[in-house]
Protein backbone atom coordinates (compact mmCIF):
# COMPACT_ATOMS: atom_id res chain seq x y z
CA UNK A 1 0.00 0.00 0.00
CA UNK A 2 2.79 2.33 1.02
CA UNK A 3 4.71 1.46 -2.13
CA UNK A 4 1.63 2.11 -4.27
CA UNK A 5 1.12 5.57 -2.74
CA UNK A 6 4.78 6.41 -3.21
CA UNK A 7 4.65 5.23 -6.81
CA UNK A 8 1.58 7.33 -7.65
CA UNK A 9 3.23 10.35 -6.01
CA UNK A 10 6.35 9.95 -8.12
CA UNK A 11 4.19 9.52 -11.24
CA UNK A 12 2.39 12.76 -10.42
CA UNK A 13 5.73 14.48 -9.93
CA UNK A 14 6.98 13.16 -13.25
CA UNK A 15 3.89 14.59 -14.99
CA UNK A 16 4.41 17.84 -13.16
CA UNK A 17 8.00 18.00 -14.47
CA UNK A 18 6.82 17.24 -17.99
CA UNK A 19 4.18 19.98 -17.68
CA UNK A 20 6.68 22.57 -16.45
CA UNK A 21 9.19 21.60 -19.14
CA UNK A 22 6.62 21.73 -21.96
CA UNK A 23 5.25 25.10 -20.88
CA UNK A 24 8.69 26.63 -20.21
CA UNK A 25 10.33 25.32 -23.38
CA UNK A 26 7.33 26.21 -25.54
CA UNK A 27 7.36 29.77 -24.23
CA UNK A 28 11.11 29.95 -24.75
CA UNK A 29 10.83 28.67 -28.32
CA UNK A 30 7.96 31.01 -29.11
CA UNK A 31 9.83 33.97 -27.67
CA UNK A 32 12.97 33.00 -29.57
CA UNK A 33 11.34 32.43 -32.94
CA UNK A 34 8.52 34.97 -32.97
CA UNK A 35 9.57 38.28 -34.38
CA UNK A 36 9.30 41.13 -31.94
CA UNK A 37 9.36 44.77 -32.91
CA UNK A 38 11.61 45.16 -35.97
CA UNK A 39 15.06 46.42 -35.13
CA UNK A 40 15.38 50.05 -36.16
CA UNK A 41 18.39 51.52 -37.93
CA UNK A 42 19.13 53.57 -34.81
CA UNK A 43 19.28 50.42 -32.69
CA UNK A 44 21.54 48.63 -35.14
CA UNK A 45 23.80 51.69 -35.38
CA UNK A 46 24.02 51.88 -31.57
CA UNK A 47 24.86 48.19 -31.34
CA UNK A 48 27.62 48.62 -33.92
CA UNK A 49 29.00 51.74 -32.22
CA UNK A 50 29.48 49.64 -29.10
CA UNK A 51 31.73 47.28 -31.04
CA UNK A 52 34.37 49.87 -31.91
CA UNK A 53 36.84 51.78 -29.76
CA UNK A 54 36.92 55.55 -29.82
CA UNK A 55 40.32 56.14 -31.49
CA UNK A 56 41.34 59.07 -29.28
CA UNK A 57 39.83 58.07 -25.92
CA UNK A 58 41.03 56.10 -22.92
CA UNK A 59 39.05 52.89 -22.97
CA UNK A 60 35.73 54.22 -24.27
CA UNK A 61 33.75 52.86 -27.19
CA UNK A 62 32.45 54.96 -30.05
CA UNK A 63 28.99 54.66 -28.46
CA UNK A 64 30.20 55.85 -25.06
CA UNK A 65 32.41 58.77 -26.00
CA UNK A 66 31.27 62.32 -26.60
CA UNK A 67 34.42 63.59 -28.31
CA UNK A 68 33.95 64.90 -31.81
CA UNK A 69 35.76 61.98 -33.52
CA UNK A 70 33.40 59.50 -31.85
CA UNK A 71 30.40 61.57 -32.90
CA UNK A 72 31.63 61.66 -36.49
CA UNK A 73 32.14 57.87 -36.49
CA UNK A 74 28.64 57.40 -35.02
CA UNK A 75 27.23 59.52 -37.85
CA UNK A 76 29.23 57.50 -40.41
CA UNK A 77 27.95 54.24 -38.97
CA UNK A 78 24.38 55.54 -39.04
CA UNK A 79 24.78 56.58 -42.68
CA UNK A 80 26.13 53.15 -43.63
CA UNK A 81 23.30 51.45 -41.75
CA UNK A 82 20.72 53.65 -43.50
CA UNK A 83 22.35 52.68 -46.82
CA UNK A 84 21.87 49.02 -45.91
CA UNK A 85 25.59 48.20 -45.62
CA UNK A 86 26.60 44.93 -43.96
CA UNK A 87 28.41 44.74 -40.64
CA UNK A 88 31.48 43.33 -42.41
CA UNK A 89 31.55 46.31 -44.77
CA UNK A 90 31.30 48.78 -41.89
CA UNK A 91 34.01 46.93 -39.96
CA UNK A 92 36.42 46.91 -42.91
CA UNK A 93 35.82 50.60 -43.60
CA UNK A 94 36.53 51.62 -40.02
CA UNK A 95 39.62 49.40 -39.75
CA UNK A 96 40.93 50.83 -43.04
CA UNK A 97 40.38 54.39 -41.79
CA UNK A 98 41.51 54.09 -38.16
CA UNK A 99 43.59 50.93 -37.87
CA UNK A 100 43.06 47.47 -36.42
CA UNK A 101 42.79 48.64 -32.82
CA UNK A 102 39.47 50.37 -33.45
CA UNK A 103 37.82 46.95 -33.65
CA UNK A 104 36.82 45.55 -30.23
CA UNK A 105 36.41 42.08 -31.75
CA UNK A 106 39.83 40.46 -32.07
CA UNK A 107 40.43 38.69 -35.36
CA UNK A 108 40.06 34.93 -35.34
CA UNK A 109 43.21 34.45 -37.41
CA UNK A 110 46.92 34.66 -36.65
CA UNK A 111 48.19 35.31 -33.17
CA UNK A 112 44.98 37.07 -32.08
CA UNK A 113 43.04 33.83 -32.55
CA UNK A 114 44.67 32.69 -29.29
CA UNK A 115 42.30 34.91 -27.34
CA UNK A 116 39.41 32.81 -28.67
CA UNK A 117 41.12 29.43 -28.61
CA UNK A 118 42.81 29.46 -25.20
CA UNK A 119 39.62 29.67 -23.08
CA UNK A 120 38.08 26.81 -25.07
CA UNK A 121 41.22 24.69 -24.66
CA UNK A 122 41.41 25.52 -20.95
CA UNK A 123 37.71 24.74 -20.49
CA UNK A 124 38.02 21.42 -22.33
CA UNK A 125 41.12 20.59 -20.27
CA UNK A 126 39.28 21.34 -17.02
CA UNK A 127 36.29 19.18 -17.99
CA UNK A 128 38.57 16.32 -19.08
CA UNK A 129 40.57 16.63 -15.87
CA UNK A 130 37.39 16.50 -13.78
CA UNK A 131 36.21 13.46 -15.71
CA UNK A 132 39.40 11.56 -14.91
CA UNK A 133 39.41 12.70 -11.28
CA UNK A 134 35.84 11.51 -10.76
CA UNK A 135 36.65 8.24 -12.50
CA UNK A 136 39.63 7.71 -10.20
CA UNK A 137 37.53 8.51 -7.14
CA UNK A 138 34.89 6.07 -8.32
CA UNK A 139 37.45 3.35 -8.88
CA UNK A 140 38.90 3.99 -5.41
CA UNK A 141 35.40 3.85 -3.93
CA UNK A 142 34.74 0.51 -5.59
CA UNK A 143 37.76 -1.13 -3.98
CA UNK A 144 37.01 -3.92 -1.54
CA UNK A 145 38.66 -3.49 1.86
CA UNK A 146 41.65 -5.78 2.38
CA UNK A 147 42.01 -8.02 5.39
CA UNK A 148 44.51 -5.54 6.75
CA UNK A 149 41.96 -2.71 6.44
CA UNK A 150 39.36 -4.75 8.27
CA UNK A 151 41.84 -5.65 11.01
CA UNK A 152 42.84 -2.00 11.38
CA UNK A 153 39.23 -0.90 11.79
CA UNK A 154 38.52 -3.70 14.24
CA UNK A 155 41.50 -2.77 16.39
CA UNK A 156 40.49 0.89 16.33
CA UNK A 157 36.98 -0.04 17.44
CA UNK A 158 38.40 -2.23 20.17
CA UNK A 159 40.58 0.66 21.37
CA UNK A 160 37.58 2.99 21.58
CA UNK A 161 35.46 0.54 23.49
Amino acid sequence: MLRLRSSSRSDARLWSWIGAAVIGVSALLYGSLASGEPRTNAERAHSLANQFACPVCDGQSVAQSDVSVARIIRREIRTWVDEGRTTDYIRSQLVADFGEDIDYTPSASGITSLVWILPVVAGAGAVTGLFFVFRRWKLEADLEPTEEDVALVESARADRS
Binding site: Q51, A53, S61, Y104, P106, S107, T112
Partner: peptide, 8 residues
Amino acid sequence: TISVGNPY
Protein backbone atom coordinates in the same frame (compact mmCIF):
# COMPACT_ATOMS: atom_id res chain seq x y z
CA THR B 1 48.04 47.27 -31.27
CA ILE B 2 44.68 45.59 -30.93
CA SER B 3 41.62 46.09 -28.74
CA VAL B 4 39.54 43.54 -26.90
CA GLY B 5 36.14 44.78 -25.80
CA ASN B 6 32.41 44.22 -25.43
CA PRO B 7 31.82 41.70 -28.25
CA TYR B 8 34.57 39.37 -26.98
